[in-house]
Design a protein around this nucleic acid. Structure first.
Length: 847
DNA sequence: CTCTCCCGCCACCCG
DNA sequence: CGGGTGGCGGGAGAG
């Protein structure tokens, strides 16, 4: 992140970012050379054409007729605020490098191009300062990493493209736009192809399928892996590792196993990749490796695979005589693959501590259960930084007691992918609603157990969730879920997720650094959680961990007020929203958008996003969640409620009333809710609290990035407790500025940071006002988190934020709240949250 | 030092 | 043949 930030700055100071991309080609580094050509002509580069920088500025998307999607993506991406910035950064990273190179080039005589060394020398001679600058700007290796590149690549396409939309990927184009050599794109595409996210349609042409079939693919791979007895193989290898003596003995555990090499096996029938089969086995090599690698995870109980084991297995499979010399090469390839898989949020880097020491390994954080529905809604984070961090910073260390791997609670695995704020996801409809709820419930349940504490929030929430399930109409369902996490949050979310994730070991997450996770620690996961999750439907797991987070958040902080916003602008998402402190997840963003759009629609403007809105509405209906198909859910799901802010009536003690928009009720299906409270769809908030929020002020939708411009960093985000939850009138919103001047300032400075800060703050604010009941289940953990944030003097980096969240989560509730209150709340929630009650609460808080 | 993994040579394949 | 692919491993950055 840091790097990115810097880069961003640099970018800003520099010429337009677009230029970077454009310049890339010009820079004509080795990598770029191809690019330039390709730019000219997507399919076949026109060499004769002179490189025109100006035209390059245009940026690829438009140029590329082949991939319509790109255009969309781009648009979305660029407009954003914080997120946009991130993206820019990311995209800029490589380009930036190029830019730098370019500069160098300029300095040096053309003839010298050949000799890099010479070049650099000359540079030095020319201008030390310039050189220094370059050095500073010079992207680190990381910035050029395949993982980052892959993220950028993924950011271009929707994770779940509409069935109708066919996206064609032109390798040349992509290479150009990403500012890399095409060769690198092959690496990415091959891995993606192995998972059927893309398929090759023609020379230089791939078609993007997205993650729709990922569950299916994973299922197939899992089956194959089981057939291959990979698990056994791994166990053998592990033993070997542990007991070198045995080494010789176990050699080929693969006996009996069908030859995994057989391409056919790997090539499960998938409509997606028609042409792939035609490729020579050689061609498939990387693909096969990738598939096998994934299989190892899928069959592994621990979901952790060390590179050496994977490499050995692969080597042995591919060669009768394991050639150790190949080991190094194999590992290299595995890193390549792992980078891509990490970008896909399917795995994350960890370290396994064995007797001999630490070993690089990767842990599967993707969906564990893909058996049921095909719904798998992981949004790929487009934030390279986040993922990167994960890989590096977050890498956790897992102690392998020995060959025996501790089964990780995969299902619960917190590590689960976070939805990244990927641009793609945003415009995509995602079955978040359901997911969210289900996830939330699951999470809630899990949290307490994990923490070992009766998480105030967690427990109560969990209970609530449970209750809801039983009840015809879950309160939660009734409650409108409005989520408008600021773009920054998205980024954060990723981090948070990790931290929060129980599986990863809450402890580890909280630690922030790579903490070691021992199997023993993990135990909490247990069946309980699993059961719950299962109940909820595997879906959740498959779908999005992020959602889970969201859910949690929701739990904690019930609702966020959504302001009607422009539906269409995905970009907008970033800016306006409200945010709950911790919870925002990318999906939510999507939802939010949908909501916003919906709201608009209600107001009279029809929006394309309508469907989206419906989706988010769903969250409320827990039961509904079960539905396998996202779309169905979305359609079914009640529409989210929108609240209208009503000036505080004199009668109310400084309480502001939020009324659900007419529309929302219907859509939401709140009426259905058994709870009377639900039916009432208003929320009372302490006016003071609201006053702080810009949100109230802005019924209009803030521009995408407009937020930045707006005086208040976070405009429009208002969160309030959901009645259903029991804590009714909590106003969570917290304009960071209000509460914490510092935070507010920070945001302004750094857009990315802003979001997060504001979010965190919100809880605090509410607290400070007293409007929010500390005890309220909803808030439980949050407050703490918020507080922490505030405390942190340093600008919040995603990382830090993450930590905080984690802490919150785990830290908990106890500290914050009054157990009694919690209970009380819990009960309340159960019994019913009535409007009155809410009022009371709110009033009390106000008072 | 080890871990990572970027980079790009060059072989293979296809049209 | 020429261009698309991508295997492969040297070598260097990062820690």
């Amino acid at each position: 992140m840091e790097v990115n930030c810097l880069t961003l700055k640099d970018l800003i100071s520099r010429p337009p970012r677009l230029d970077f991309a454009i310049e890339d080609g010009e820079n004509a580094q080795k990598e770029n050379i191809f690019v330039d050509l390709s730019r000219m002509a997507p399919k076949t580069p026109i060499k004769n054409e002179p490189i025109d920088l100006s035209k390059q500025k245009i940026f690829t998307p438009e140029r590329n007729p082949i991939t319509p999607v790109k255009l969309v993506d781009r648009q979305q991406v660029e407009p954003w605020t914080p997120t946009a910035n991130l993206k820019i950064l990311i995209s800029a990273a490589s380009p930036d490098i190029r830019d730098r190179e370019k500069k160098k080039e300029l300095f040096r005589p053309i003839e010298n191009k050949d000799d890099v060394f010479t070049d650099s020398l000359q540079l030095d001679a020319v201008d030390d300062s310039a050189v220094d600058e370059f050095e500073k700007q010079r992207p680190s290796r990381k910035q050029k990493s395949l993982g980052l590149l892959c993220q950028k690549f993924l950011a271009r396409y929707p994770s779940y493209p509409l069935s109708t939309e066919k996206t064609t990927i032109s390798l040349d184009e992509v290479a150009v736009s990403l500012g890399v050599e095409r060769r690198r794109i092959y690496d990415i595409v091959n891995v993606l192809e192995s998972l059927h996210l893309v398929s090759r349609v023609a020379k230089n042409q791939y078609s993007w399928h997205g993650r729709h079939s990922l569950p299916k693919t994973l299922r197939n791979l899992q089956r194959l892996g089981e057939k291959q007895k990979y698990e056994e193989q791994m166990a053998h290898l592990q033993q070997k590792e542990l007991n070198p003596i045995d080494h010789k003995s176990g050699e080929r555990r693969r006996d009996g196993c069908p030859d995994s090499q057989d391409p056919q096996l790997l090539d499960f029938p998938e409509p997606d990749c028609p042409s792939s089969s035609a490729n020579s086995r050689k061609d498939k090599s990387l693909k096969i490796m990738s598939q096998k690698f994934v299989m190892l995870f899928l069959v592994s109980k621990t979901k952790i695979v060390t590179l050496d084991v994977a490499a050995k297995i692969l080597i042995e499979e591919s060669q009768d005589i394991p050639d150790h010399s190949k080991f190094k090469t194999k590992v290299r390839r595995l890193y390549d693959i792992a980078n891509v898989l990490t970008s896909l949020m399917l795995i994350k880097k960890v370290h396994v501590t064995e007797d001999r020491g630490r070993k690089p390994a990767f842990k599967w954080i993707g969906p564990v259960d893909f058996s049921s529905t095909g719904v798998y809604s992981l949004e790929i984070g487009s934030l390279a930084a986040v993922s990167r961090q994960k890989m590096e910073d977050n890498s956790e260390t897992v102690a392998f007691a020995s060959q025996n791997m501790m089964p990780l609670p995969s299902s619960l695995d917190p590590a689960a992918p976070l939805p990244s704020p990927s641009v793609d996801s945003e415009y995509r409809v995602s079955p978040l609603c359901n997911q969210v709820l289900s996830a939330a419930q699951t999470d809630l349940k899990a949290l307490p157990a994990q923490n070992g504490v009766n998480g105030q929030g967690g427990v109560s929430l969990a209970s609530m969730a449970l209750d809801v399930e039983h009840q015809p109409q879950p309160l939660a369902a009734a409650q409108p879920l409005l989520y408008v996490p600021p773009a920054p949050l998205f980024m954060l979310c990723g981090g948070l997720q990790e931290g929060l994730s129980p599986g990863s070991g809450s402890g580890s997450g909280s630690v922030g650094g790579g903490s070691e996770v021992t199997a023993a620690e993990q135990p909490p996961m247990p069946s309980g959680q699993k059961c719950l999750s299962k109940e909820r439907r595997l879906q959740e797991e498959e779908e999005e961990p992020a959602t889970k987070r969201q859910c949690r958040d929701h739990e904690d902080g019930p609702l966020s007020l959504v302001m009607p916003k422009k539906p269409s602008d995905s970009a907008d998402i970033a800016s306006p929203k409200t945010s709950e402190s911790r919870a925002s997840a990318p999906h939510e963003d999507t939802h939010m958008n949908g909501q916003l759009s919906a709201a608009k629609a209600v107001s009279g403007k029809a929006t394309t996003n309508g469907f989206v809105s419906s989706e988010w509405g769903n969250p409320c209906s827990n039961t509904e969640i079960e539905k396998p198909s996202e779309e169905n859910e979305s359609t079914k799901g009640p529409s989210p409620l929108q609240y209208l802010y009503v000036q505080p009536p004199a009668g109310l003690n400084g309480l502001s009333v939020l009324l659900p928009s007419s529309q929302s009720p219907h859509a939401v299906g709140l009426p259905v809710g058994p709870l009377p409270s639900l039916s009432i769809q208003y929320m009372v908030l302490p006016s003071p609290t609201l006053s702080g929020f810009p949100v109230l002020c802005s019924p209009t939708m803030p521009g995408p990035v407009s937020s930045a411009p707006s005086p208040l960093p976070n405009v429009g985000p208002v969160n309030f407790g959901l009645p259903g939850l029991g804590s009714t009138a909590h106003l969570l919103i917290g304009p960071a500025a209000m509460v914490n001047p510092k935070s507010s300032t920070l945001p302004s400075t750094d857009p990315q940071l802003q979001g997060p800060c504001s979010l965190h703050l919100s809880p605090v604010i509410s607290r400070s006002h007293g409007s929010v009941q500390p005890g309220s289940p909803a808030y439980g953990s949050l407050p703490a988190a918020t507080v922490k944030l505030q405390q942190s003097p340093v600008p919040v980096t995603p990382k830090s934020i993450r930590c905080t969240h984690q802490e919150m989560f785990f830290k908990t509730p106890g500290s914050l709240g009054d157990p009694v209150l919690r209970r009380k709340e819990r009960n309340q929630s159960r019994s019913s949250s009535s409007a009155q009650r809410r009022l009371e609460i709110s009033s009390g808080g106000t008072d």
